[in-house]
Amino acid sequence: MSRLSAGTAPGTELARREITVDRARLVRYAGASGDFNPIHWNDRVARQVGLPGVVAHGMWTMGAVVDVVVEALGDPGAVLDYQVRFSRPVPVPDPGAATVLVVATVGAVDAEAGTARVDLNVTCDGQRVLGKAQVVVRLPA
């Protein structure tokens, strides 16, 4: 596990992780978040609106991938600002699972402010699913 500090050079890879997501995971996320949009659990509805089938909640992906940053910081409360664009859906097959790969890289360090920007490269099957995925964090004291 890498740690982030004021001395970490921009460009440093902080963490990478493969995260699998299956239909059961989406049902859990629906329940935990209150987002019951049927495109996240019903193939028929998903196809009716032009999707290949059930897709993951964009907010599931956003929530799941930031954990690599929390782990590197050692504090869930150290995330000050977190933004993403949803550039491509993550289809979740049944049976089976989709795999999302997240690579977290240090974008910038502001030692004076005690903050850093971590950029997330998030892909599924080699294609980017999140754009401009940036996490501003408070550096560990």
Binding site: Y29, M59, W60, G63, D67, V69, V70, E71, D75, G77
Partner: peptide, 28 residues
């Protein structure tokens, strides 16, 4: 559901060790 692994999200003692009054929310 989101795979948040840090114990401060689920364990009160771990959260208090970081200075929080109770378990802390994942970032999203």
């Amino acid at each position: 559901a989101t795979g948040a692994t840090h114990p401060a999200c689920t364990d009160v003692d771990a959260a208090r060790a970081l200075g929080y009054p109770d378990v802390v929310a994942p970032p999203t």
